[in-house]
Amino acid sequence: MSSEIAVTASDLRVTFRKGEVKALDGFDLEVPTGQVIGLLGPNGAGKTTAVRVLSTILRPDTGSAQVLGHDVVKEAGRVRRLIGLAGQYATVDEQLTGMENLTMVGKLCHLKRSSVAPRAVELLEQFGLSDAGGRPVKTYSGGMRRRLDLAAALVARPPILFLDEPTTGLDPQSRLGLWDVIEALVKGGTTVLLTTQYLEEADRLAQSIVVIDKGHVIAKGTPAELKAELGATVLELTLASEEAAQQTAALLATLSTKTPHIDGVTVGLTVDEGPKIAAEALRRMDADGIDMLGLALHEPSLDDVFLALTGRKAEVDTEALVEGTTRKGRKAKEAS
């Protein structure tokens, strides 16, 4: 793998509403050529703003960014020939068919006239949309639409791909399908910057994860490094009362290197050896006569990463989501 840097950003700052909202606040990033970097953070962290700056859509207030050595502001035209953008805010045309969408993008990318249609057909086939290619996009399912969106980003075979929350709002099955597609793509050597709210997604697709909060990077490393730092497992205990929760947190504090987190009647503990610690926790609580309503061990989620890094819960802003209900449904599933 080459150690060349494909995308860099240094000290990017972007403010909205006349400086009231700092969307990017000293954002730095390096994406090595041929790698997939996951930009992980809750909604409103600045992920989409970062992608918009890197894809030349938005000018930063200060700071600079380069794509394959070309400045995103001064050489925007050049950069646009090197990137593909797909994601929650950049979409396809609902009224046009899948085929028409891809040929339109092909023409606008200035492909050779004779190769516009064959490239569109090739992509429809690659993304399993051959049968739907002649139908208007408004008849597509959420998963099909995202696949077409991804296909549209690939029309000119760009060496750099920006995927902005590619699976947000999708049902679990479509999400898995899209992950397969992205994985296949990455094997072909494309450099990818992927933004996501899901640790699971970054874990599966990215070689390296950058965690962003309030417009700047708060942690980076491989998924394994991040999890190791966090503790491999989260132990969650549900108690009968808030008082009991406080008591339990104090009792179990020595079991983890991190401070236990109390949220109402639940206590969360990030630990290395889940089952062993859980058994020890049970013993201690039994000895002290504290009754427990529930115990769960799970892999750390973005919420846990966030909690560990910032000491507060990741706030998920459902307002910004296009398909809010599906998303909420999954959020509830994740929480359970």
């Binding site: 918009r52 894809s55 030349t56 859509i57 035209g77 646009r80 020939r81 990137i83 953008l85 929650q88 805010y89 950049a90 979409t91 396809v92 045309d93 609902e94 993008v105 606008l108 990318c109 200035h110 549209a152 000119a156």
Partner: peptide
């Protein structure tokens, strides 16, 4: 509103288009 202009702006097409 639909986000199509976002896609257009990231394409190497003419700004006048």
């Amino acid at each position: 509103q639909s986000g199509l202009l976002e896609r257009f702006r990231a394409l190497p097409m003419s700004r006048a288009a």
